[in-house]
Design a protein around this nucleic acid. Structure first.
Lengths: 243, 243
DNA sequence: GATTGAAGTATTGTTCAACAATCCAACGAG
DNA sequence: CTCGTTGGATTGTTGAACAATACTTCAATC
């Protein structure tokens, strides 16, 4: 008899409490994910199988498994017989990302019920984190805190799947900032905005918070898109991320 | 010199218009996806590598690549050294799925601007599809049309990423219906509801449509959850989908 | 009888090497 | 200059091998 009952096909009893160890492929994916998000591999760069599996000390098959994971997160794109490339978002991607964020963040803010809930406190902590990073002159940390802030906003919806999706959207957004290499003081003006949004939320003024967030997203998108179209009409236009 | 300029690392000029041919792994994933959604492999069943790569005529490595894709869609779960199993959602998953749907569908309906837009027409066509299937006695087709209907609702947001996420959520929801094997006339009462929502939407009454949709989702969730907790407290509780 | 512990077996995890398929760059003919 | 051809480089896929792990079985003990 095998490990599972083949009539029902169910894993034999006993719920699994300990999370399973991450496979090699997942660890490789995690490494590459951080490298891409941190900008170690610039957007558009091809990730050579041969070189990487040499560098990471894993086989090509395992590396390819890791690639599939990242493709699903849109951090890299895969072109048949050409290889995988770090995603190079264009202005259309920026618009789509902000549309997605509007859909995720605004209703979450509007429908948040309890201003004293832990989920709201998480938002506040992300604001603190951003201000601390600013005071320390850590601009990359400011960006990270900003991501945490918006992740926390989406978290108000209370759905694990939404959380996961949001984290992918934000990771992609991070790539956008790499494309327009101005990650220095870009996030600074938004810190006060974050503070204001959280204050309104904690006061139970969901509509006010949503209104602030709306203008926040609109101006941020506008700023990024204009920067992108300038880039696109100016330089040559390499293969996009939506092949 | 290689195919790409290694200094910039960018794919050399020329945007790619023709969509790349699907790889073997993607074709296998598509096959398995449909098989799982259609219920050929019941939730909880283990998918043996050996048997499947024999059945599909692909190598184990390719099959494993396909598995990674489905894992990311939550249609199957992967447990280290145990294999992959068709996801077996529990009541908590049902709640999360409906929370996600609320976040995706409601704001899309509320913020839809043009009642005459093509995106609204798509909603109407899904309603027609459902009624046609009902008249033909095709209950599985009714369920499919219902999925199309809600996919169309989320599509009102106008974000490709939202669309993709929504399709995954709905695919998972489909699994839920397989767990409680009552896919017969379950969707029937909702057909009229769909018609009503579309009528309101086409009339520009977004709030009215959103209100209808809210009660729709609430009752549907309640119905499913009660069925699930009955199942869970009754039978033994195998390994869940969120290990 | 129930529980504990130690093989044994089946399955997955990972690697490796080989070949096929395809893309890309360079070259040459017209 | 344009167009086809050719050759090299990279990925796509396969098959087999071995390691690592989980599950079962069975015996020993309380």
């Amino acid at each position: 008899m095998t490990a599972t009952d083949d009539r029902t096909g169910r894993p034999t009893g006993r719920t699994r409490l300990l999370p399973p160890l991450p496979s090699q492929a997942e660890r490789v994916a995690e490494l590459l994910r951080e490298a891409v998000i941190d900008g170690d591999h610039p957007p558009g760069r091809r990730l050579s199988e041969e070189r990487l599996c040499e560098e990471l000390g894993v086989s090509r098959n395992t590396l390819r498994e890791a690639f599939r994971l990242l493709v699903r997160e849109r951090l890299v794109v895969h072109q048949m017989h050409r290889g995988v490339f770090v995603s190079l978002p264009d202005s259309e991607d920026v618009r789509d990302l902000f549309n997605a964020r509007r859909s995720l963040e605004l209703p979450a803010v509007q429908r948040a019920v309890d201003p004293t809930a832990e989920s709201v406190a998480v938002v506040g902590r992300a604001v603190d984190e951003g201000e601390a990073a600013r005071d320390a002159g850590d601009w990359w940390g400011v960006g990270t805190a900003n991501m945490h802030f918006h992740q926390a906003l989406a978290g108000l919806a209370g759905s694990a799947r939404i959380d996961e999706f949001m984290s992918r959207v934000l990771a992609e957004t991070r790539l956008v900032f790499h494309v327009m290499d101005a990650p220095r003081e870009f996030h600074a003006p938004y810190l006060d905005w974050n503070r204001r949004i959280h204050t309104l939320l904690a006061a139970g003024d969901n509509e006010g918070a949503a209104a602030e967030l709306t203008t926040y997203l609109d101006t941020s998108e506008e700023q990024l898109v204009t920067a992108f179209v300038a880039r696109e009409t100016g330089g040559d236009r390499p293969a996009g991320t939506t092949p």
